[in-house]
Design a protein around this nucleic acid. Structure first.
Length: 938
RNA sequence: AGGCACGUACGUCAAUGGUAGACGGCUUCCCUUACAAGGAAGAGGUUGGGGGUUCGAGUCCCUCCGUGCCUACCA
């Protein structure tokens, strides 16, 4: 069971008002029926604290089974398309922070576009992960005292499938917990029959075009995993080592040449010594013959530009069979390749009778000992260099000459570079990765695609008894082509990344020209981590261009990395990983998603406090909804109630509508530009600051009125409607809590769905994402509210600074010369009175306050006074006003400096200059009034 | 060795070249019937150092210092 049933936890048992209200549906989870029924419009008891587990258990199965995730839910044939293919996690994997991060972003976009009415597909699946999976099963066998050779290939592969079917893919259940709105009906696995078919098709076509070939090359070999590795699967690790200076005698002379090496044991396979042709020290020696110690071989001294005269002794030993550079040089000089190390990193017979069978490191000691005996070891110095290790098992890789399959990359590379140059695709976010990507492509070398494993796509090449190679789509086709059934298939499998490279189109049915391929390819965006730009992103681009003729995605978004709290990378070996499932349990999925969505493209340290604050935000949403629902009688969600053209539209309503549309606009822009952090900030502040702190407080008087009036119903309707709209904005980020609350709102029904989903079950995930209506962004209302907020804040500041107890009522006097301003204050007098806890609020043209008052000057020139007869400490008040004055002076000084600079006035945009002028005017007016106030006090 | 990124409040991070912000933490006050996982009011910054471009630089350029990451065929 992926997510266990959470027990009901008594809420906050220490609290005096502990409530044990139970939701009507606690006894049974509605997993079988429709969406839970909530009392539409009837008042109901709702817990004070949000329990995320409740909602998390309730909705996912419902969404999935009612087909909400599948693009078919969209009934609009002309709908625009949005598609993403998931970077397939390893089938052996379990969810880690990196997945959770990427999935959150993909889900946010997918849910957003779906609500916008797009035909939306997010296609899930897993990767067969060749080596990892084979190792997992091998370990399992080991516990039974078996190894894979005991079973044989066929049985072993069967066993891996069994493992895959039983234990693989736990990550898919974890993704359900995340709320990922992927279309499970299209789930793929890289070794599914149809994907295997695509793999073979690609292999055969590339082979036929000469882009796949088999040959002997020096490759990276892992002596532990017994397989070849591509360059990208090898990691270079700096390491303290030694540099050995070995003397090689020169034939026919007394002298010797000294070479420096980090790997003395390879000298047994040397077939030359090389020097730089321009190195005068060795000029006479080029062409000489060297007597290679410990062997009976004579080797030439050759000249090659590659040799750096500055390094070591200027003379280099050449071992073409065991070093990549030497290999290349060997080809240039037609040198013999003497293989002295085998696949198990042991010395071969060619290394000589004294060394055969020795491990490479034992052989090293022995070579060094012999050189010492013969007095041919000149010196040994400490030396730091990079050593190549197998990325997976950390064994030191051995360069070996081996018969493998390779893919020529030159033409594919050119396709990708052209795609970038001509169409600017893929577009990388952030931009700088474009260069990383293109630089890598430019230096691309052939790709070793065969692996000596059993688990994977076996190479579709067969050999006849006479050694002929047949590459075909199937055994049958191969037989036909060979004219015999006596064929042996190549035992190797393909690099896992070969099938991954085809993922964006193989998952959509290619090579068939399917409807999915036509509709959903190319995909809209790829969201992934930067470490697979080369391994995966570039290869998908090349394959997509080659086989479909179009790049696989328009945009590539590269996420940052989540580091641990000390700034270290999270890793299994370091045991410093944070398990996203633990975070879900502790703070809820929605809060975790908000945290993750706030991670941009740079690395961030994991900060649990951040999750906690978003958990609090979820609770805030819950309680705002709780308030609305507790006061919902007689009202229901009604979008047409938010038309400010209607009469009787109080300031707070005009204002919140304006803020809402501004928020919607900013949010949409942020999402379209992948500015997730910006999007979250925008939502957070709209909901908490605008909606909760001000709108609800201002609307409270009407909404909670005892009397059943039209005014009350209207206020309630608007509150519910704004809330409903806000939940829609939040939904892509916080799918669970928004659905949970939405389902409870009276009037939240199928008529709110986007028209593309007409007829579907009512769910917020199919509700229309709000449109930003510019004409409803009301600058005047926002300015008016700003003055009210300013007034309220000033009075509160006075109360706080004067130590007036919260319970104590004060008189508040406002003087405003501007009649419009007076109207604004008067119209909202009731609300202001409540917010500043005043006994009385009077608004007049000028301020007639007793001397013993605390005062403040507002933006726009209004003044406010709080009479504090007997309470006021004049010295303290003076200090407070001085501080205020100081603030104004500092600000004024800054602006003055700018305005007094003739260059600024001349060259800055007029708009900017005007802005500063009006600000300075406002400050000047306030300063004058403040100064007057201060003088009156003295 | 090259390349890229980063360095901003006590912490973690934001800021199309135009008034440096958020969240957490901290101080003071408040269990005010949506929410103490809350409310109100505050304190806290020469944006790593130095130079330059610009009317104006956290932002662009140079340089130095620190920190990460990636690429590379110096034995």
């Amino acid at each position: 069971m992926p997510f266990g049933q959470a027990p009901l936890v008594p809420i906050n048992s220490y609290r005096k008002d502990e409530n044990l209200w139970l939701l009507p549906y606690n006894a049974e989870l509605p997993l079988d029926g429709g969406f839970p029924e909530f009392g539409n419009g009837q008042s109901m008891e709702i817990p004070k604290q949000y329990d995320p587990k409740e909602a998390e258990q309730r909705h996912y199965a419902r969404w999935e089974s009612s087909g909400c995730f599948a693009p078919e839910i969209n009934r609009n044939p002309a709908a625009p398309v949005f598609s993403i293919v998931i970077p397939p996690p390893n089938v052996t994997g379990s969810l880690h922070m990196g997945h959770a991060l990427q999935h959150t972003m993909m889900d946010v976009l997918t849910r957003y576009k779906r609500m916008c009415g797009f035909r939306t597909l997010w296609l899930p699946g897993t990767d067969h992960a060749g080596i990892s999976t084979q190792l997992v099963v091998t370990r399992e066998l080991k516990k039974e005292g078996l190894n894979r050779l005991d079973l044989g290939r066929e049985k072993f592969v069967e066993r891996v499938w069994k493992w895959k079917n039983e234990s693989g893919g736990q990550i898919t259940n974890q993704m359900r917990r995340e709320g990922a709105s992927v279309d499970w009906s299209r789930e793929k696995f890289t070794m599914d029959a149809d994907l295997t078919r695509a793999v073979r098709e690609v292999f055969v076509r590339l082979y036929e075009e000469g882009m796949i070939y088999r040959g002997n090359r020096l490759v990276n070999w892992c002596p532990n995993d017994q397989t070849v590795l591509s360059d990208l699967e090898v990691e270079k690790i700096p390491q303290a080592g030694k540099l050995y200076y070995l003397r090689y005698p020169i034939k026919g002379e007394d002298g010797h040449v000294t070479v420096a090496t980090t790997r003395p044991e390879t000298m047994l396979g040397d077939t030359a010594v090389a020097v730089n042709p321009n190195d005068s020290r060795f000029e006479k020696l080029v062409g000489a013959t060297i007597l290679l110690p410990l062997t009976n071989r004579e080797i030439p001294l050759v000249a090659d530009e590659f040799v750096d005269p500055e390094f070591g002794t200027g003379a280099v030993k050449i071992t073409p069979a065991h070093d990549p550079n030497d290999y290349e040089m060997g080809l240039r000089h037609d040198l013999a390749q003497v293989v002295v190390i085998d696949a198990y990193a042991r010395m071969t017979e060619a290394a000589g009778a004294d060394f055969v069978g020795l491990d490479r490191y034992k052989a090293r000691e022995k070579v060094v000992a012999r050189f010492t005996e013969m007095e041919l070891l000149e010196k040994v110095v400490d030396y730091e260099f990079s050593i190549s290790k197998c990325e997976r098992c950390k064994t030191v890789v051995e360069p070996l000459i081996s018969l493998q399959w390779f893919m020529r990359m030159d033409r594919l590379r050119d396709l990708a570079l052209e795609h970038l140059a001509r169409e600017g695709q893929p577009r990388f976010v952030p931009r700088q990765y474009e260069r990383v990507y293109s630089n890598w492509l430019e230096n691309l070398r052939d790709w070793t695609i065969s692996r000596q494993l059993w688990w994977g796509h076996q190479i579709p090449a067969w050999y006849t008894s006479s050694g002929e190679t047949i590459v075909a789509r199937s055994y049958e086709e191969a037989c036909e082509s060979a004219g015999t059934t006596e064929l042996t298939q190549d035992p190797d499998v393909l690099d896992t990344w070969f099938s991954s490279a085809l993922w964006p189109f193989s998952t959509m049915g290619w090579p068939e020209q399917t409807e999915d391929l036509r509709v959903f390819y190319p995909t809209s965006v790829l969201i992934t981590a930067r470490d697979i730009i080369f391994l995966w992103v570039s290869r998908m681009v090349m394959m997509g261009l080659k086989f479909i003729g179009q790049g696989p995605f328009a945009d590539v978004y590269i996420t940052g990395t989540i580091l641990d709290s000390h700034g270290q990378r999270m890793s299994k070996t370091k045991m410093n990983g944070i398990d996203p499932l633990d975070v879900f349990d502790k703070y809820g999925v929605d809060a975790t998603r908000l945290t993750l969505a706030s991670v941009g493209t740079t690395d961030v340290r994991w900060n649990e406090k951040q999750v906690e604050s978003y958990r609090n935000f979820a609770n805030k949403i819950w309680n705002a909804a709780r308030f609305a629902l507790m006061n919902a009688e007689g009202a229901a969600v009604n979008p047409s109630s938010l038309n400010p053209a209607d009469e009787d539209f109080p300031l707070q309503d005009r204002w919140i509508v304006s803020r809402f549309h501004r928020t919607t606009r900013d949010l949409r822009v942020a999402l379209e530009n992948y500015e997730f952090h910006e999007a979250v900030q925008t939502l957070y502040h709209f909901f908490w600051d605008d909606f909760c702190d001000w709108y609800i407080e201002l609307a409270k008087i009407d909404v909670t009125s005892e009397e059943d009036s039209l005014r009350r119903t209207t206020a309630r309707t608007r509150l519910l409607t704004i809330l409903e709209q806000a939940l829609r904005l939040l939904h892509p980020f916080m799918p669970y809590i928004t659905e949970e609350l939405w389902q409870r709102l009276p009037g939240a029904e199928s008529n709110l769905l986007h028209q593309a989903y007409a007829g579907a079950d009512a769910t917020i995930m199919l509700a229309a994402f709000p449109e930003a209506r510019e004409e409803l962004i009301d600058e005047k209302a926002e300015w008016q509210m700003k003055t009210i907020i300013d007034l309220v804040s000033r009075v509160r500041n006075i109360r706080s600074e004067m130590n007036i107890k919260p319970a104590e009522r004060v008189r508040v006097l406002v003087g405003a010369a501007d009649p419009q301003l007076r109207d604004v204050f008067s119209a909202s007098a009731e609300q202001i009175t409540r917010l500043v806890r005043a006994s009385e609020l009077s608004v007049g043209g000028e301020l007639n306050a007793p001397k013993a008052s605390a005062r403040a000057v507002l933006t726009g020139g209004a003044e406010v006074a709080v009479p504090l007869e007997g309470l006021i400490d004049f010295a303290q008040e003076l200090q407070r006003l001085d501080k205020e004055m100081e603030k104004l002076r500092t600000e004024a000084a800054k602006i003055e400096t700018q305005l007094s600079n003739p260059n600024f006035v001349q060259r800055a945009p007029a708009e900017k200059v005007d802005e500063l002028r009006s600000r300075i005017a406002d400050i000047a007016q306030r300063s004058t009034q403040l100064q007057q106030t201060i003088e009156n006090l003295q």
